[in-house]
Measured scan of single mutants.
Amino acid sequence: MIVFVRFNSSHGFPVEVDSDTSIFQLKEVVAKRQGVPADQLRVIFAGKELRNDWTVQNCDLDQQSIVHIVQRPWRKGQEMNATGGDDPRNAAGGCEREPQSLTRVDLSSSVLPGDSVGLAVILHTDSRKDSPPAGSPAGRSIYNSFYVYCKGPCQRVQPGKLRVQCSTCRQATLTLTQGPSCWDDVLIPNRMSGECQSPHCPGTSAEFFFKCGAHPTSDKETSVALHLIATNSRNITCITCTDVRSPVLVFQCNSRHVICLDCFHLYCVTRLNDRQFVHDPQLGYSLPCVAGCPNSLIKELHHFRILGEEQYNRYQQYGAEECVLQMGGVLCPRPGCGAGLLPEPDQRKVTCEGGNGLGCGFAFCRECKEAYHEGECSAVFEASGTTTQAYRVDERAAEQARWEAASKETIKKTTKPCPRCHVPVEKNGGCMHMKCPQPQCRLEWCWNCGCEWNRVCMGDHWFDV
């Protein structure tokens, strides 16, 4: 396979590697080409510095992935760790964990309700045991953590790749202090920090972006993250068709209702045909949960890209028209025109101005929308079919299609509260000796007794199943 190397943020060049090629071997190839010592090179990928003893497969490097290699003399205490030698983080029983690669970060837990604080980093599902597709590297999971809308060759929703760059020099040479644990960490600028490894760059702020994971991409090709779309790892039924499908869209209502993408497309087109989208002054033209839940309008309007190009163009047109109407304007009634106009409040005669090729020149009556006339309008008909009709959803289907309910059931079956801080902690095999993952707590306690870890627990039921 081919990976592209950008040395000291210059133009990239291809390097041929195998899945079992080590990072140090990659350094040696680059060092020979650039005429520099291999031990002064640092390989940066997806916000993480890659260790010498890791392989291309370990690092989730795919065909035509772009890695950054910078030349920086080692500072005291760094060289041993980078070589894969006596790194205290690798000691058996050590409590410190390697910062998780962005290629394996899962933010789907952050669609849980606000009262489930902490689960994004504490609760991990076991539903990723799908067998890898044919042709994928051994052991590589097909679980997708992110979804994007690819405006490039795909023109559809695709699995996405999370990447990070330095907000100062805009190069992907920043190593994160810690990985993101929720969508806010990724979507809110300057929320996460790190250290830029580019020479002479003092940058410390992280800037995240997404790429389409279905095809090789260049540095400049980015895609918009659709953070309401998630892999259906909890096997929730769709609120409309009641099938279990994946991926799904999880509405931001209190129940976190789930809808499959085909039904979401149908829901949007139906509402669009009836012009029953909601115009929100802050958000724009949007839709609420299909069950009509309060405070559930979709905030990231790129989710409506699921409509496809033709329907999305209609959505944008109707949204612009609705904006004009909300501002007190009118639409030209001549067939084939429909231009938005903003006449004076007491102006009865409205002319669709033909300047700049935008208007048709038609003069019409503001009251009856017919060709302009003197005197009273002959008839004014009330528009028919403008009443909002509820999208029919079966109550039982709505009850079963809740992301929140599956989460709470998982928590109930696989977790116990920490005796000190009461945060839910998952036990997935292993011994009875637990350690609270909350940095402010870190209590060592017994899963069996529910009390602080002691010699009695150690001698009596340390390794009970």
Rank of each mutant, 00 (worst) to 15 (best):
C421H: 00
K76Q: 14
K211P: 02
W183T: 00
Y372G: 04
S141C: 09
Q197E: 11
S181F: 04
Q171H: 07
N58Y: 10
K435A: 14
N273C: 03
E321T: 08
V186G: 01
V465L: 15
V105W: 10
T231A: 12
V3L: 15
G179Q: 14
W54T: 06
G319H: 11
W403A: 03
K48I: 03
S233E: 08
I298V: 07
T204G: 14
D184E: 13
H227K: 15
P419L: 05
H200K: 12
R402Q: 10
K369Y: 11
L162R: 00
L443N: 11
V164Y: 12
I69A: 08
G179W: 04
R140T: 13
S9E: 05
T222W: 07
V67G: 01
D274V: 04
S193N: 10
P113G: 12
A31K: 00
W462P: 15
G329A: 04
C238A: 00
F364H: 05
G336H: 08
P137Q: 12
V465N: 15
V456Q: 15
Q25F: 04
D346E: 11
V148Y: 00
F13G: 00
S198I: 07
P439K: 05
S19L: 08
G118F: 03
D20S: 10
Q25D: 10
L26Q: 00
G114H: 13
P281G: 10
P153Y: 08
V29S: 08
E353H: 08
Q178K: 14
Q438Y: 04
G361W: 08
G94I: 12
E221R: 07
S22N: 07
G160R: 01
M192F: 05
H422C: 08
G385K: 10
C293W: 00
L61S: 01
F45W: 05
P37A: 10
L176M: 09
L341K: 06
V3Y: 03
A390D: 14
S246M: 02
V43A: 12
T240H: 06
H303D: 00
R271H: 14
H227M: 09
R104V: 08
I122E: 15
A225T: 05
I298C: 01
V244G: 02
D115F: 04
V67R: 00
S65M: 04
R314Q: 03
I239S: 05
L297H: 05
D243E: 15
I306W: 03
L261H: 03
F381M: 09
H422S: 12
H373K: 03
H11P: 04
D464I: 15
Q252D: 09
K48M: 04
M432Q: 05
P437Y: 09
E367T: 11
C95V: 14
P189Q: 07
L187H: 04
S127P: 12
V248S: 02
D126W: 05
P439N: 14
G179S: 12
Q400V: 15
G77I: 14
V36D: 01
E395W: 09
A371L: 08
D262L: 03
L41Q: 04
G385V: 08
I259K: 00
Y372L: 05
A172P: 14
R348S: 06
V324F: 05
T388P: 13
P88H: 06
S296E: 01
F208M: 04
P88I: 12
P159C: 06
A405T: 13
S296V: 01
Y315S: 03
S19C: 09
L226P: 01
A31V: 01
S131K: 10
S145G: 05
K416F: 05
D53P: 04
T173I: 05
L342F: 10
A134D: 10
F210L: 09
Q155E: 09
D184Q: 08
Q252K: 08
P288I: 04
P437F: 06
V30Q: 01
G160S: 04
P417A: 10
G135A: 13
V250C: 04
N254P: 13
P288N: 08
L297I: 09
V248W: 01
C449S: 02
R348E: 05
H11R: 05
Y372I: 07
G338W: 05
L331H: 04
C418A: 01
E16S: 09
Q34L: 08
P247T: 06
T83D: 12
R275D: 00
C451Y: 15
S131D: 13
A46N: 14
H11V: 06
R275I: 00
D60L: 08
L162Q: 01
V350L: 11
G336C: 07
Y318I: 09
E195D: 08
G139F: 11
R256N: 09
G429P: 07
Y391F: 11
K48V: 04
I23K: 00
E376T: 11
G329S: 03
K349Y: 02
R97E: 11
E395T: 11
L174A: 04
V324Q: 05
S233Q: 11
R170A: 10
G160N: 01
A291H: 06
Q347E: 12
A339R: 14
L325E: 04
T415K: 10
G135Y: 11
A225P: 15
L112Y: 11
F277Y: 12
C241R: 00
T237A: 14
P199I: 08
E444N: 15
P294T: 12
E409K: 08
P333V: 04
D18M: 10
I188N: 10
W74L: 14
A401K: 02
F209S: 14
K299V: 05
C441M: 01
D394C: 07
Y318D: 00
C323I: 14
T177C: 09
V393E: 04
C241A: 00
L331N: 04
I142R: 10
E376M: 10
H265Y: 14
D262T: 04
N232V: 01
N254Y: 08
L272T: 00
G354I: 10
E28G: 05
E310K: 06
F264A: 02
H422V: 05
K161T: 11
N8Q: 03
K412R: 10
Q389K: 14
A92F: 12
V350F: 04
L331Q: 06
E207G: 05
A405S: 14
L176G: 02
M80Q: 12
V111M: 13
W54Q: 14
P417H: 12
Y318R: 02
L341V: 12
Q25N: 08
P199Y: 06
H422D: 08
V3R: 03
R348Y: 05
G84H: 09
A214V: 09
S205D: 09
R348L: 08
A225Q: 05
E28H: 06
H461F: 00
A38S: 09
T83I: 14
L272N: 00
F13L: 04
R314C: 02
H433I: 03
P437C: 06
R163E: 15
H461Y: 00
R402P: 02
G213A: 14
A401I: 01
Q71H: 07
M80K: 10
G152Q: 14
D394P: 06
K413Q: 13
A206Y: 02
I229P: 00
L174W: 04
R170H: 15
D346K: 09
T168N: 09
T270Y: 04
E322C: 04
Q326S: 11
C95K: 13
T237Q: 14
D460H: 15
G430C: 07
L272S: 01
R97F: 11
F210D: 00
P294R: 07
D20G: 08
D106L: 05
G336V: 06
L50R: 01
C166I: 01
G459K: 15
H227S: 15
P247S: 04
Q316V: 11
L307A: 11
E300L: 04
S131R: 09
Q158I: 05
E399M: 14
V29H: 14
A398P: 04
G179M: 07
Y391E: 06
A379N: 12
W447P: 00
C260R: 00
E353C: 06
P137R: 12
K76E: 15
L342R: 08
T351S: 11
R275E: 00
F146A: 03
S378I: 12
Q63H: 15
E376A: 14
E409D: 14
I236D: 02
G94C: 12
P14F: 03
T242V: 07
H265L: 07
N235R: 12
H461G: 01
A214N: 08
L228I: 03
Q155W: 06
S205H: 10
M432F: 05
A38I: 08
V278S: 09
A38G: 05
V117K: 15
S384D: 08
G359N: 10
M192S: 04
A120V: 04
L341Y: 07
P288S: 10
T270G: 04
P37T: 08
A92G: 05
A31R: 01
V269F: 02
R420D: 13
E382V: 11
E452K: 02
E444I: 05
R396M: 11
R128I: 11
C268L: 04
